[in-house]
Nucleic acid binder design. Structure first.
Length: 352
DNA sequence: CATCCGTGGCA
DNA sequence: TTGCCAAGGAT
């Protein structure tokens, strides 16, 4: 009547349905003693923060190809790592990734600590990621609580309290279910359940390994949970960007400061982004306003960019920014909003 | 503790 | 087209 969901039932399901991912060791391989490489677990978990598996896959393969070990990554140039991360978003993750790799290499001799508290003291590793590494890489009985786990717990226990206030309660409930046996597989199993069956919309309760004992299903409110407080509406900001190309083919770009929006990334010089941006060109030239605008939405605001283009003479020196030779310029190194600008503006500079 | 920080897919 | 959503952390 009031059965509690059994972790064993979820593990049985996971043994048959675990999804294949480049950073994962299959349950069968694990039976023969294989543990996942902590470096790969860490790298994947950082990339997966607020990011889908589909988006992460190619980035993970690129990073492990370029930097097979944490020590390789620690030795990398900052700009190369930021360029490799371009397009994945939340660029503070990339900066902290490098910091963390260097701490692990220098202070821990290239060996990730297995202790959750030690992990959480490292840059970019918070409550979720420390539990994920400790459980998945080192099979310690730590409890991961991400968006999937919150949703699964809210439904299994029919928690009506909305997020984010319900976070602490959901964490306690999740901890109450974490088994001492195979905690790493269990952690991935709960998240897989949330990603494939206990989905935000139209959960597939009919094929759920935890259908028995799920209170929300009994009450017929699974799809309505977790409840969430309304979010603030996004304002719309405006801005101007300047796309300049020197007569020798070089592009005028600037490295953004480490802190703040798109921190550490390469971008086009331009105005501030606000309700009434104040623009001044980075170099004197015959600027032309492009017909098309670029629209882009960040986490907390919409942006509409006006684009100015110009060819400039070799003799002119810019007030800010740096010239990147054409052969060194890859649009894919830019964050998405600036890549959109390039896509719209590039036709002006075609005959090269 | 509230705010800041990307992106692409999808209803 | 718009808003919601996804394996969060730092400040």
């Amino acid at each position: 009547m009031c059965e509690t969901p059994q972790p064993e039932d979820l593990l049985t399901w996971y043994d048959r349905h675990a999804r294949i991912m480049p950073w994962r060791v299959s349950p069968e391989d694990r039976k023969s003693g294989h543990r996942p490489d902590p470096y790969r677990v860490w790298l994947s978990e950082i990339m997966l923060q607020q990011t889908t598996v589909a988006a992460v896959r190619s980035y993970f393969l690129k990073f492990t190809e370029l930097w097979p070990t944490v020590s390789d990554l620690a030795r990398a140039e900052d700009d190369d790592v930021m360029a490799a991360w371009a397009g994945l978003g939340y660029y503070a993750r990339a900066r902290n990734l490098l910091k963390c790799a260097r701490v692990v290499t220098e202070r821990y001799n290239g060996i990730f600590p297995s202790d959750r508290a030690a992990l959480q003291s490292l840059p970019g590793i918070g409550p979720y990621t420390s539990a994920a590494i400790a459980s998945i890489a080192f099979d310690q009985p730590e409890t991961v609580v991400d968006g999937n786990v919150e949703r699964v717990m809210a439904r299994v226990f029919a928690v009506e309290e909305p997020l984010p206030p319900a976070k602490a309660r959901l964490t306690t409930l999740a901890e109450s279910l974490t088994p001492k046996k195979r905690p790493g597989d269990y952690a991935q199993a709960v998240m897989d359940l949330g990603a494939t069956i206990c989905t935000p919309k139209r959960p597939a309760c009919g094929i759920c390994p935890w259908m028995t004992g799920c209170k929300a299903r009994d009450l017929g409110i699974a799809a309505d949970l977790p409840r969430k407080l309304a979010k603030a509406a996004k304002p719309t900001r405006k801005g101007v960007v300047y796309v300049a190309r020197r007569s020798d083919g070089a592009w005028l770009l600037e490295r953004r400061p480490d802190k703040g929006l798109l921190g550490g990334m390469l971008g086009w010089p331009g105005s501030d982004w606000s309700d009434a941006p104040t623009a001044s060109a980075p170099i004197s030239a015959d600027w032309t306003t492009l017909d098309a605008e670029v629209r882009h939405t960040f986490t907390h605001f919409h942006l509409i960019l006006t684009i100015q283009t110009a060819w400039v003479a070799v003799e002119e020196n810019p007030s800010n920014g740096q010239y990147i030779p054409h052969r060194d310029f890859r649009p894919t190194d830019l964050p998405t909003v600036f890549r959109k600008v390039f896509d719209v503006a590039s036709h002006v500079f075609l005959n090269d």
